[in-house]
Amino acid sequence: MSTIMTHSLYLTGRSLRILRREPVYLAFTLIQPMVWLLLFSQLFQRVTDIPGFGDVSYITYLTPGVIVMNAIMTANWAGTSFIDDMNRGVMDRNLTSPLSRGALVNGILAYQTVVTVAQSLIIFGVGLLMGARYDGGLAGVLVVLAAATLLAIFFAALSCAMALLVRSQESLIGMSMFLALPLTFLSSVLMAPQLVPDWVDTVASFNPVDWAATASREALHGDTDWSVVAGQTALLVGVAVVMGWLASRAFRAYQRSA
């Protein structure tokens, strides 16, 4: 195994150790998606009556959306571990060790993957209890996990890059929140694309959140058009890789002013 991969694994292990010591954190992060599931499924219960919405219950429509939304919200915090490391001397020590910048970013992204998969499986379970049906079966569930993870990687890498540039917890969270909600509402997470204004649909087609939501619902609803799933997933892979690379480049900006 190459050095960068081994180093990435050591750093992922470090993050998972923190999670293992304080598992309450995982439970805490799950409160929000549970509230959304409950709230939105009640609030928008009748939208399925609108002609053209499609022949599914709203909880079935909503569950993959909440998984996607949760992936973004959790990933938005990823950069805070960089800021903690910067506020302590850990970042400087790491940057003066044989660790590569790529490994530092990979460690965070791999950890984010583990957390996203664990959270998504729990949301799947709660959705099922609330009456959601996953006709796509195991293949569908796996696609949702992949799409949510790719989206989480994209937002986690963005969060890491911003952390290196702004270097303050408050600015980072402020900017993340500023992005997360509009991107969620300008997508098909909550509302069927055929029922939103054209301009929203157009914007959504450039929105990674919508790519993940679309691929997820398509894979879950049974009569799956795999070309749609493949197309949206390929786009997600592309932006996740590019953003991961940009995050490792952002160290230059950090070091230039260090």
């Binding site: 050095t3 081994t6 180093h7 050591y10 292990g13 470090r14 150790r17 923190i18 010591r21 304080e22 506020n87 302590r88 001397g89 850990v90 400087d92 020590r93 790491n94 003066t96 060790s97 044989p98 660790l99």
Partner: peptide, 27 residues
């Protein structure tokens, strides 16, 4: 070896875990 001005150990890990990770990083 570099000891920055600010503390650079991982407070959530034990002393030995800190040393082990650093040793692994150095191969």
């Amino acid at each position: 070896g570099y000891v920055p001005q600010k503390p650079c150990f991982d407070p959530t890990a034990t002393g030995r875990e800190n040393l082990t990770l650093q040793g692994r990083i150095h191969g």
